[in-house]
Simulated assay, not measured.
Amino acid sequence: MRSVKVGRPREHKEATRAALRAAAERLIADGGVSAFSVRAVAREVGTTTRAVYSLFGSTHGLLVDALAQTAFDFLADGIGQIVETDQEVEDLLQVGVVFRRLVLEHPAVYRIAFQRVVPGFRAGPELTAARQRAWSALLRKIERLRPSGALGGKSAAEAAIQFNAMMEGLANAELRGSVLRLLPEGQEERSWREALLTVIRGFAVAGTQPSSAEASDSSATTAR
């Protein structure tokens, strides 16, 4: 059992909140969502269930909003700390490094935020704001590709959706571990880099290709 030292009220409140989040994450990481309960989290920290409810409002508030928010705060802060260089593609690849760190360092939090392992998942306003902050940080990195033409004709939002989808796919593959392994063992970091680089290169290529509708019109014109 871990106890939280009592300090000034505001500092104590924030310390308790952080300790409760960490305890909830540990319980879920060790035993899955079924191992989670407000009583177990409170006992782990050395506080009362009343303290949990006063800080998070409900079981759902701690299990979903607080832990999922931790994931998006991690991403937003990590992306924001990437030092920008004149190599926009390399800078964007660093977003993948941050995302992979979340997956490896906080797998339980990742699963709650991205895999919806909690029944009845609903996002509160703080979680929604944290997600938007992370999404905006990704969009800014994507938009930096535009001056060089690396985005082709894509909007930053379209490119971000594709980039994010690849990151989530890679994350899910790596979380399998040795069970039905997909990523080559010992080459996971390289696999992430190559897959994300392929997506980035595809932005410009896709921008030069006609859409299916345009291709159909062209074929019809040629046939006339």
Rank of each mutant, 00 (worst) to 15 (best):
S3V: 09
V4F: 12
V4P: 06
V6I: 14
R10K: 12
R10S: 12
A15S: 14
T16V: 15
R17I: 04
A18N: 13
A18F: 03
A19Q: 11
A19T: 12
L20D: 11
L20I: 08
R21S: 08
A22R: 13
A24S: 10
A29K: 11
A29N: 09
D30I: 00
D30P: 00
D30V: 02
G31F: 03
G32E: 08
G32Q: 03
G32K: 06
S34W: 00
A35F: 00
A35H: 03
S37R: 06
R39L: 11
R39D: 11
A42R: 11
R43E: 15
V45A: 09
G46H: 03
G46D: 10
T47E: 07
T48G: 09
T48K: 12
T48E: 13
A51N: 15
Y53R: 11
L55I: 12
F56D: 06
F56C: 06
S58M: 11
G61C: 11
G61M: 07
L63S: 04
V64Q: 03
D65K: 02
D65Q: 09
Q69C: 10
Q69G: 15
A71I: 01
F72E: 06
F72G: 01
D73E: 12
D73T: 11
L75P: 00
G78T: 06
G80V: 10
T85I: 02
V89L: 04
D91W: 02
D91Q: 05
L92N: 08
L92A: 07
L93W: 05
Q94C: 13
V95Y: 10
V95H: 01
V97L: 03
V98L: 01
V98Q: 02
V98N: 05
F99I: 03
R100H: 06
R101V: 00
E105M: 07
P107Q: 08
A108I: 05
Y110M: 01
I112Q: 05
I112A: 08
V117Q: 00
V117C: 07
V118H: 04
P119D: 12
F121E: 14
P125K: 10
A129T: 10
R131H: 14
Q132D: 14
R133C: 01
W135S: 10
L138V: 13
L138W: 03
L138K: 04
L139V: 08
R140F: 00
R144W: 01
R146K: 15
S148F: 04
S148Q: 14
G149R: 12
A150S: 15
G153A: 12
K154M: 15
S155D: 10
A157V: 13
A159F: 09
I161F: 12
I161E: 14
N164D: 13
N164V: 00
N164H: 13
A165K: 02
M167L: 15
M167W: 01
G169Q: 07
A171W: 01
A171T: 07
N172C: 06
A173Y: 09
L182P: 01
L183R: 05
L183Y: 05
G186Q: 06
Q187S: 11
E189N: 07
E189G: 10
S191Q: 04
W192M: 05
W192E: 04
W192V: 04
R193M: 05
E194D: 14
A195I: 03
A195G: 14
A195Y: 04
L196E: 07
T198V: 05
T198Q: 11
R201Q: 10
F203D: 07
A206N: 09
A206E: 13
G207D: 08
G207C: 04
Q209E: 09
S211P: 02
S212M: 06
S212D: 11
D217S: 09
S219P: 00
A220N: 05
R224C: 02
